[in-house]
């Protein structure tokens, strides 16, 4: 059994996912996510020595397409689901950090 999930980890994951949590949320998710992880932890009972990591659950490889253009969406259609646009670009709140 690996270490138990800590509230700090929950806060970190929430921050990486840009999800705002209240302290009550952190408590609840630490417990709930801890239970999920504990359940999945059962897998570690299996001996996987010498077993290749699985790259993909489907046993299919090399699904490739030819380098042939297909029609794109019109700009109007592309922007149509955007919460905000100026008719040419998607608009987002000003980005401060140029990284």
């Amino acid at each position: 059994m690996s270490e138990a999930l800590t509230p700090e980890t929950v806060r970190k994951v929430a921050r990486l996912a840009r999800i705002q949590l209240t302290e009550a949320d952190v408590d609840r998710f630490t417990r709930q996510l801890g239970q999920v992880l504990g359940y999945v932890e059962m897998l570690s009972e299996l001996n996987t020595d010498g077993v290749e990591p699985l790259a993909h659950p489907l046993e299919i490889e090399n699904v490739l397409r030819e380098d042939e253009p297909t029609p794109s969406l019109s700009r109007e259609a592309a922007l149509s689901n955007s919460p905000k646009s100026d008719g040419k670009y998607f608009l987002v709140p000003q980005i401060l950090d140029a990284g």
Partner: peptide, 12 residues
């Protein structure tokens, strides 16, 4: 980015 410093939206 809007270079004017007036905090306008960024375009994508």
């Amino acid at each position: 980015h809007d270079e004017s410093g007036r905090g306008r939206d960024s375009q994508v």
